[in-house]
Amino acid sequence: MSNVNVKVRPDTPLAHISFPSAKQGGVTFQERGFYGHLTLRGNSGDAGFVSSVEEILGLSLPVKALSSASNADVSIHWISPNEWLIISAKGDEAELEANLRAKLTGHFSVVDVSGGQTVFELSGDDVITLMKKSCGYDVEAELPVGKTVTTHFAKASVVMNRLDEKCFMLVVRRSFSDYVWRWIEDSSQEFGLVIKL
């Protein structure tokens, strides 16, 4: 380990933003920075792969298209027939990656993408209208709580999951996060935007 004496200071993708300070509004925004993000690839037909993932995450692997599983700290989202996104609120991606690599066998890959994406949470009474202004997916009827879709939000590609009736999670690529934030700030003007830090 290095002896170079520097105090390490990480920044979320929105670290440069001066957030507005409104206390009331129809939409609430929160950046969930510093979560751990891992892209897992593998064969869901391989019982060993499925059981190993379940053992390490404590969650059953969502093999049904567009589904997800979660507990208090970790969620895992179906992205494609052989791809999942693991998000950990504890930021323990290095440990998770090591555990997965130690346990998994055969053809698989685990990639740490924690620096490359961030999580935005949108909630509030007007959040549905905001979502409708921002994407073409039928969030009212086709996105029940727990479903995960990869779609667009304005002109950015996002992974979207409904956390609650009036709460959505967007996984946004780091380089697009400023754009997505500015879009949200702009399109929520008519409702008022509250920032949760």
Binding site: H107, F108, V111, D112, S114, G115, Q117, R174
Partner: peptide, 13 residues
Amino acid sequence: LEVYMTSVTDHWS
């Protein structure tokens, strides 16, 4: 071919 590809463009500065 047993190979998986993942974009990590945004992950690394």
